[in-house]
Design a protein around this nucleic acid. Structure first.
Lengths: 108, 108
DNA sequence: TAAAATACTTTGTATAGCAAAGTTATTTAT
DNA sequence: ATAAATAACTTTGCTATACAAAGTATTTTA
C-alpha cells in the first residue's frame, strides 16, 4: 500500500503490470477476456496489428504465463488459437480494477 | 473510429497517448489534475520517483505542452512549481475517458 | 572551512516496441 | 509442370525511451 492517505494508487503506479499495460497487449487481452478464444488472423483484424507485432506480443504474453497458444491445422493450413490462462485473466482483471480506481473521480 | 462495431476502442488503442500512458507521467498528471499546482519536491514524495526520473518526465511533459514549469526562489533555494496547461488537462481527461470506456464492463 | 544537504540536470545503458525482411507451406495462374 | 502469389507466421535490426548513476551549483551545518 502507498504512504499516501488520500489517493491509494499514485506511488503504486510505478509497479503497474507492464505486460498488460502496453496498448497492443491491452487490446489483445481485452478481446480475449470477453470472447474467450480467437485465432491469430482474427486478432490481426480486430487489433490492426501487423503479423510481426502480434507474433512478438503473443510470445511475450505466453512467456508471462498469460496466454495459451494452441497450434493446429484448419484444412491444410496452419492455425494458431489463443486464449487467456487463469493467470492471464486475473492479471487483466487486476489491471482493470487499478485503472477504474484511478479514474473513478474523473467526471465525463 | 474503429471498424469494429462492438467495441469502439480496440484497434484504436494503438494511438493511445503515450505521453500520458507512461505510469510515472500518469501519476504526475493525475496528481496535478486534482491539486492544480505542486513543487518538484512534493511530487518526488508523492510519486516515489527519483530526482533524475522526475526531471526527465517533466521535460517530456513540458515539451508536449502539457506542463507549465515555473522556476523561482523560496528564500535562497531554488524551487520549481508545476501545473498542467489547459492542453495537459484535456489530454489527461481524454485519456481517462478512454480507459473508463475500455473497462466499463469489467465487474469488480 | 570542510562536509553534507538541497535541488536539480545530464549522461549512459539496457529494454523493448515497431517495421521490414525472412521462412515454410499451399494455392492459383500459365 | 512450374512459376508466381498468398497464407501464416517468426526473426532480425533499428530506434526510442525509461531508469539509474553521475554530475553541477548553491547553501547550510558541523
Amino acid at each position: 500500500m502507498s504512504e499516501n492517505g488520500g489517493n491509494p494508487s499514485l506511488s503504486d503506479l510505478a509497479d503497474l503490470n507492464r505486460i498488460v499495460h502496453e496498448p497492443a497487449r491491452l487490446a489483445i487481452m481485452a478481446l480475449l477476456y470477453v470472447i474467450e478464444s480467437a485465432d491469430f488472423t482474427f486478432l490481426i483484424n480486430q487489433t490492426g496489428l501487423t503479423w510481426g507485432n502480434l507474433s512478438a506480443h503473443i510470445s511475450k504474453l505466453e512467456g508471462a504465463g498469460y496466454l495459451e497458444v494452441e497450434k493446429s491445422f484448419k484444412g491444410k493450413r496452419p492455425s494458431t488459437t489463443l486464449r487467456l490462462t487463469t493467470q492471464g485473466r486475473k492479471a487483466f482483471h487486476d489491471y482493470a480494477q487499478r485503472m477504474k480506481q484511478l479514474f473513478k473521480d474523473v467526471p465525463a
